[in-house]
Design a protein around this nucleic acid. Structure first.
Lengths: 146, 146
DNA sequence: AAATGTATTTATAATAATTCAAAATAACAA
DNA sequence: TTGTTATTTTGAATTATTATAAATACATTT
């Protein structure tokens, strides 16, 4: 659904290596899962894998997500629940949180993103270096009126 | 520290009533704590209260935060940890997340906020009603280079 | 003031999400 | 192969949150 540009196992191995991570089977599987899911919680990745044959511990999923995040292959997404979410799309982009259905979807507007970043960078307190700007759009469907 | 406009017990009682909540002592205490803290997790509120004499269960803190959120007195803040945060400032405003120290601070730019909202509203998929836009600024101090 | 019904709080147990520690396994280099 | 290090597994430990049932407080009517 997301931007599906052929993520062959070879490509993934290579990407892992480039980021300084050994391409273990578990890491490849988790990365594949993340590509398929776009953004997901550790548990969601675990579920997704459970369906396949690759047996893997939940702790490993956490480990792998953590090391990939360190390596810059994933980023943590802020969430409104008490659950942590990761995203394969490491470039900044907005997210729509539909509060009545709990659905999360992407919302891309590169111009907006660039403008906001520029403006914020200009006003950032001295000594701080901007990493990225996350924009979340909270909404609900018109039928479900608040 | 935040915007400290006299939050007397009477004012709080009144605000609770206006929002359709009975002004129980626990609710008053939690709201006072939230005013003092600005944004906080349930646990942080509990700690803050523990210091005082008002004995209250952690479960009550959760209950109260939840009902205040329902009533519109608080909002949930997205977080990068697996912990839920609440905020007394229900008007939309940006937050700075300093990743090396985990500090969170407010960043106000009403013009930016308005512009972003307008632009997003214009592009929102049909059938969706915009509730609010949250902007998070991730950064680190220049000394701690990534 | 007593009685009633409802809302709220408490205490505690249960669940969910995450992390930790130690042993087992795999990968790698000498 | 052997030794070394990184990774995964298992399972327990923590942390965060929610659920349940009993106790208490509140508000209203009598």
């Amino acid at each position: 659904m997301e931007d599906r540009q052929q993520h062959t196992e070879e490509e993934i191995r290579e990407r892992l290596n480039q980021s300084g991570l050994k391409a273990t089977p578990q890491r490849v599987l988790v990365y594949e899962a993340m590509c398929a899911l776009g953004h997901a919680s550790a548990d969601a990745v675990f579920q997704h894998l459970g369906a396949g044959q690759g047996k893997m511990t939940l702790a490993t999923v956490y480990n792998v997500l953590e090391s990939m995040t360190q390596a810059g292959l994933l980023i943590r997404r802020p969430s409104f629940s008490s659950k942590m979410y990761f995203d394969v799309h490491t470039d900044a982009h907005c997210h729509i949180y539909q509060q009545d259905t709990s659905e999360i979807s992407d919302f891309c507007d590169e111009t907006l993103q660039r403008n906001v970043e520029a403006r914020i960078r200009a006003q950032l307190p001295a000594g701080l270096q901007l990493d990225r700007v996350e924009i979340q759009i909270l909404c609900h469907s018109q039928s479900h009126e608040a």
